[in-house]
């Protein structure tokens, strides 16, 4: 699989269709995002994230692309995408974080193995177009249903307990491919008192959850990085479910649908006196 991807990228670079490729590189056993500028660079450490004996490493490449694209406005980039990366790209384009997107980057997609799809209970473990890989079966995550099955006091007890483990490392936010704000509400003292540890429970996590409405693309990176093993994804999945139920909006899909919180419902001014 990796060979197909490598050769595809090599061709893009050789033909000059892209000036550089944002992918992953294995350097002395450590996998990290890397910008490949020359075709021959691809022969050294180019990887899809696989490490022996461990699940493949993932990074919010879409978020990195955002920075790279704005730093180098004249260049066109290639980017390695899994299903989740692609969903993030769609959402970032929608939020205008990759301006001129259509001609600014080329996606090089590959399907995740079933093992990884199972690991992250991925709803779509492959991008729309794949250069390589067998499309794995989507896996549904049942964690929301588990919470829904609990009674109110049990839910509160559960969340209070897991939120109290939070060490406020902001890892969930920093890894999040769709967290792009320059200033963050989570650091707004007037809303969430700063200096508390664990942070105000449940305000800190519910605030972040509210900000994930219409944004979270369900990549599971937040839960993966959380040192306190807080099941954040479950919380954001619920938010996504609410947004879908109430506004019919699903994140991470192509097209120019607007995020439901970014426009007014009925025509401006037409508010009814009755609710």
């Amino acid at each position: 699989m990796i060979e197909q991807v490598r050769e595809h990228v090599r061709k893009l670079l050789t033909d000059g269709q892209i000036s550089a490729f944002l992918g992953l590189r294995n350097q002395d056993g450590n996998i990290a995002p890397h910008i490949f500028e020359k075709p021959e660079d691809l022969d050294e450490g180019f990887t899809l994230g696989d490490v022996e004996g461990r699940p493949p490493a993932r990074y919010p490449l879409a978020k990195l692309l955002m920075t790279i694209v704005s730093a180098d406005p004249d260049k066109k980039f290639g980017i390695l995408v899994r299903g989740c990366d692609e969903r993030a790209l769609y959402e970032l384009v929608r939020w205008n974080q990759l301006p001129g997107a259509a001609y600014r980057f080329v996606k090089v997609g590959f399907a995740c193995p079933q093992e990884l799809a199972d690991e992250h209970e991925c709803r779509k473990p492959f991008p729309d177009e794949c250069v390589a890989g067998e499309k794995a079966q989507p896996v549904m995550n049942a964690s929301v249903k588990e919470i829904d099955a609990k009674a109110l006091p049990e839910r509160l007890e559960y969340w209070s307990r897991v939120f109290d483990r939070c060490v406020k490392c902001y890892g969930c936010r920093d890894i999040c491919p769709v967290c792009f704000c320059n200033v963050c509400t989570l650091e707004e003292n007037a809303l969430i008192r700063t200096g508390d540890l664990p942070p105000e429970n449940p305000i800190f996590h519910l605030t972040r959850a509210a900000h994930m409405a219409g944004r979270c693309i369900d990549c599971n990176l937040c839960t993966e990085v959380c040192p306190a093993e807080i099941p954040l994804r479950t919380l954001y999945k619920k938010v996504a479910e609410i947004v879908q139920e109430d506004f019919g909006y699903v994140t991470g899909e192509p097209g120019d649908a607007k995020s439901p919180l970014n426009f007014l419902g009925p025509d401006p001014g037409h508010t009814s006196a009755h609710d």
Binding site: C181, N182, S259
Partner: peptide, 8 residues
Amino acid sequence: ETCCGCLG
């Protein structure tokens, strides 16, 4: 300084 141009 802080606007990220998300068009929201």
